[in-house]
Design a protein around this nucleic acid. Structure first.
Lengths: 265, 265
DNA sequence: CGCCTCCTTGACCACCCTCAAGACTCGTGG
DNA sequence: CCACGAGTCTTGAGGGTGGTCAAGGAGGCG
């Protein structure tokens, strides 16, 4: 048992949330769950727009987003920024910059957030000692690459309205997995300017695209609440379909769990 | 010694090339090098434009690019495609799709290529048995994420001429590391249409951007040979600077090499 | 109530796309 | 050796998507 275990009273209620993400590819054993739970330091609350971690600084930690939404973005001197990833509760943030001398992206709070630091040393120790944790991290990094590939190809090769539609579907899917979104209602606490920075366009044009999707009868809006009226039509319009992660991963990880948690659904 | 060792006579001369990439973050021991060498099957030669691996198929392998240039791209029904990564000799290809049920990207040959398949099982076995290999793969995946982040933010937030300039500098840097490019001359065997697919624009406009960079006095062209006249000015124009990978990685990997395999510092 | 942030809308314009035609290169075959 | 054709590059003309600028409206909070 390592010294960080004393943090775990705060991270108590996070555990299920975090496990949800970490379990994406692997069913961890109880003892593994214990260790993963102990990864994060005491969570910190930050207001909206707060910088969680600067761009162009020495990376020392990764971060677990416990509550709220956050953005990873590349900021230019002109003030322009491109959001490269919208992080939802349970996400691990700032991992990619760990391979660099200076961080490539800035982590900011899109809403008030609660986040927990994970020192790289602690992360690295678990990575070295638990091959299954290493495999899970490897796979989830690949999944992040896929997300980037999808976002990039949309920015490069689809129109603005299509991009917005795809983003709404994407957020809806991710949120429903964290079970924030019920049915086809979508609560998006972020501004149209944020949308613009995600989609590589301007706030003004985001607004016009929203109107366009409304006129097409695909969505309806009530303030920040968005309702997807015809998901099928919207998906077709956006040329979007959900990615399904590999079901068979025995090439990387033993499919069965050695100890207790045996039963597979 | 595993059965794949018999492939190693062909992969003989590749080893230095591949090691160059695999060594990016770690210095491997001789026995580790042996195992990595044995990863790839017998390399296969393919003509330009050949599909190395389709999109939307079940992933069974990753690929080592031994010679030539290849592209990972997302292809739309309309025939449009976005190249998400230009692979140079020594690159590992198709890794990100390994986490999916169906591949997200299509791998195609931009020039005649020589490539070697690595069955996922073989990759996974080495990953499980060698924590140092696992760490190296993890880090190189993070580096790929950074490359995607950079490409994406450029497409989303910079003008076409800036993007082209950044791409030229990027290719020059990568090529000079594989030592194909001497000095400021850049041999690009790919068409302007390929450039367009990388940069998220049209071939016609790529041509105009080339002309613009020439008129600025930043580059000169002789067919497919490009000379960067003022790299400093070009980098400033493109808002480009080389990324430097972390020098201190002892949080993930023991910095010094143990002899054969086991002993921990 | 007033201020701030965000949303909305209009007018204008530029960057980049589309279409199209001609020039150049290079491999192939007569 | 030249002719041909396919693929690529180059250039022009015109148009549309989306950016810029600006002003008014709507909501939230001290």
């Amino acid at each position: 048992m390592n010294g960080a275990a004393r943090d775990s009273d705060e991270s108590h209620d996070l555990s299920c949330l975090l496990m949800h993400r970490f379990n994406e590819y692997i069913k961890f054993t109880p003892s593994e769950v214990m260790r993963i739970r102990a990864l994060g330091e005491k969570p910190i609350a930050l207001p909206r727009s707060a910088v969680i971690r600067e761009q162009e600084v020495r990376p020392t930690c990764v971060y677990i987003l416990v509550d709220g939404w956050a953005a990873a973005s590349v900021v230019y001197e002109s003030g322009n920024r491109q959001i490269t990833k919208v992080h939802l509760p349970g996400d691990l943030m700032g991992v990619s910059s760990a391979c660099l001398d200076l961080t490539a992206e800035c982590l900011t709070a899109l809403t008030p957030v609660v986040a927990s630091r994970v020192p790289l040393e602690r992360f690295g120790r678990l990575f070295a000692e638990s091959p299954r944790f290493a495999a899970a991290m490897f796979l989830s990094s690949q999944r992040e690459r896929i997300a980037l590939i999808d976002a990039m190809s949309r920015i490069g090769r689809t129109t603005s309205a299509e991009r917005l539609a795809a983003l709404l579907l994407d957020l809806h899917e991710r949120l429903s997995r964290v079970s924030h979104a019920c049915d086809l209602r979508l609560e998006t606490p972020i501004t149209q300017e944020d949308f613009a920075d995600i989609l590589g366009m301007t706030p003004v044009h985001v607004n016009r695209c929203f109107k366009k999707l409304q006129n097409l009868g695909s969505i309806r809006r009530f303030g920040k609440r968005i309702e997807i009226l015809d998901p099928h039509a919207l998906a077709k319009f956006a040329r979007w379909s959900p990615r399904s992660v590999a079901s068979k991963l025995d090439w990387l990880i033993e499919p069965t769990v050695p100890e207790l948690s045996g039963p597979r659904a």
